[in-house]
Design a protein around this nucleic acid. Structure first.
Lengths: 80, 80
DNA sequence: ACGATATTACCGCTTTAGCAGTAATTACAT
DNA sequence: ATGTAATTACTGCTAAAGCGGTAATATCGT
């Protein structure tokens, strides 16, 4: 299971690889510096849109997975 | 890119497959019924922990992916 | 069509996330 | 060791997330 601490570590890793400080990343993502710090430290009660802005700024994509996801995507195919 | 609307659709699909109503899922996940409705309808400003409780209740796992994730996991290996 | 169940909408209320500003602490160069 | 930049910590404030309760729609089986 992916925890918020894992998410924080992943974001910090990507930020450093990108050569950004927390403040720079915050500006880039359009969020406050406080929440960048919070997320990197595994805060659970952050807002989803805030997290997604940061992930997008670092080119990290979210994926959901389960045994039912195949069936879900087949359902998408019907629409096309 | 995975949007919050996608997340909502995925959750609704899993909930129905599990034979649960929104209220039942809410109780199961330990959250309010309102937020289950909100998330299924793509609300962006939900809290991450709330979303994760619902995902856990439905056995859906979150994954983050990027070109740098391989390098990140190699870093984990050093610890073991 | 009817009744039962589920979903959606709206309501106050309480809690708190996010913010900028600032200060303190830590890390990292030279 | 000293100075510079980065991280962490704290604060007061505003906006809003989440909550249960209730009511209005919508959905579905029979």
């Amino acid at each position: 299971m992916l925890t918020t601490e894992d998410i924080g570590r992943i974001i910090r890793f990507h930020r450093k690889k990108a050569g950004l400080t927390q403040v720079q990343l915050a500006r880039l993502a359009g969020v406050g510096k406080t929440v960048v710090f919070d997320i990197e430290n595994g805060k659970e009660s952050v807002r989803l849109d805030t997290l997604m802005k940061i992930l997008a700024a670092l080119n990290i994509r979210i994926e959901l997975n389960s045994p039912l996801m195949a069936a879900f995507h087949e359902r998408d195919d019907e629409k096309s």
